[in-house]
Each structure stands twice: as C-alpha cells, then as structure tokens.
Design a protein around this nucleic acid. Structure first.
Length: 104
DNA sequence: CTCTTGACCGACG
DNA sequence: CCGTCGGCCAAGA
C-alpha cells in the first residue's frame, strides 16, 4: 500500500519534469512548490521516500551548491547516472552546473 | 499535539 | 576552503 501526501506528489511531478541532461536543486523545487525557496529539506524528505523510484528521476536533483548532496541508494550511483545522462560530475560536484541547472 | 529526524540553505568565523 | 550555528518545512513516533 503506497501512501503519498499531496506535498510529496508535487515533488515527484516536478522531478519528472526535469529534462534529460539537466539538473535541478532542492531549493528551486521548494520554490516551485510555493515554499518560497525554503523547505528544501521537505523536498529531500519526499525524494528520500520516493515510492516512484524509476518513475521519478530524483537523481537529477542536486544541492544548491552544485554538489550531489545525497542519495538513498548511494551518492555514487547518482553521480554515475548523471554522467550517463550527459551531465559532467567531478568530485561529487556538477561541472557547468549553471549550464545544466534550470534556474528561473 | 509535541518531539525528533532529515537526500537542505545561508550566514559567520 | 572548512567547520559551526540557526532557520525553514514536512513526516513519523
């Protein structure tokens, strides 16, 4: 039985909206959720539970600093996936982060 | 309802 | 650059 709160549902939807080869930040998502750029932790919480693992590309979400931040399956896996998507990652940090990240 | 935890963020030193 | 402190939000016990 999968139970998802409306808040988490929004996070999953937004994450799935992230185009391939691009990445987003927890703060940016929080902002889209009308949290005003705050509540980034809440976004991470939702992704951590992530019942829609392959359905939601949560690995496209990184920290505001461009760092990987964390990953339920291991940050290493996240980096590998991003690199496979075409995103260059170096030392747990996104290269050309400004170019691959969607900032509005 | 209260307390704790967490894939965060920004500011200070 | 690194470590520490405070603040914000949501979910779980």
């Amino acid at each position: 039985m999968i139970v998802v709160t409306p808040f988490q549902k929004r996070v999953y939807v937004l994450c799935s909206k992230i185009p391939k080869g691009k990445v987003s930040t927890y703060g940016a998502i929080a902002k889209k959720l009308k949290l005003g750029g705050l509540g980034a932790r809440a976004v991470g919480q939702a992704l951590n539970k992530n019942p829609y693992a392959p359905r939601v590309p949560c690995h496209r979400v990184v920290a505001s600093d461009g760092t990987i931040g964390g990953f339920a399956s291991g940050c290493n896996k996240k980096i590998m996936l991003l690199k496979k998507e075409g995103v260059v990652v170096k030392n747990n940090t996104i290269v050309d982060f400004e170019k691959v990240s969607r900032r509005e």
